[in-house]
Design a protein around this nucleic acid. Sequence first.
DNA 1: GCCAACGTTGGC
DNA 2: GCCAACGTTGGC
Length: 232
Amino acid sequence: MAPKRSTRASTRAADSSQGDAAPDGDDNDEVDVKKPVRGKRSASDRSEKKAKAEPPSIPLFSHWLMKSEPESRLENGIDVKFGIEDLKALPNQTGCWDGVRNYQARNFMRDMRKGHLAFFYHSNCKEPGIAGIMDIVKEAYVDHTQFDKKDVHFDASSKPDSPKWSMVDVQYQRMLQRFIPLSELKKYHLQHGANGGPLKSMALFTRARLSVQPLTSEEFQFVLDLENKAPI
DNA sequence: GCCAACGTTGGC
DNA sequence: GCCAACGTTGGC
């Protein structure tokens, strides 16, 4: 059975002990060791291989955009709503970004480092766009929801001794001074495509369906500067 | 609600 | 390894 949405979906708070009580050992289960399985490789193994990036010794990006749905929507009878206000409402304003079921999105989460910044993007809603900023507060570790039969993002093909899916913990930092709608970003994207400018190859438009995506520092800074400018 | 874009599956 | 069929994403 196919995985469902790759956007984040649950409202689970992050383990509040995450701070200093999350030593490296915890994260090490998550290393990319794929047991060499003898014999036939499944289609998903192949998909994963294709999506797998070269292991970069130096992280390429330090800014991110992560999508989640701020409006109620039932998936298998479960509400997948999780907007920036929901993150803000969690203990310590911190939550785990679970439910990502796309290899490229997962790989980007594995590239995230503590202290990286991410935009919280509202998707699949009345007004899509960037609502605020989060901090990455815990680096990639096993997404427990892949083993939970009751979870919307349960993945029967993932085994506890070689988990497929990872998540990070994020902490709410602040709202943008004004909501930056997708429509406005798109205007800049088109303008920059024609005349040059920082948003000309923004992943939001070139990789529209990717729920976790990188931004260059220039892209991030340009978007950030928009909060103090009048909408176009 | 529609549907284009694109990722995944699985037979061959 | 190819690729048609299928399923999901997410704007509109």
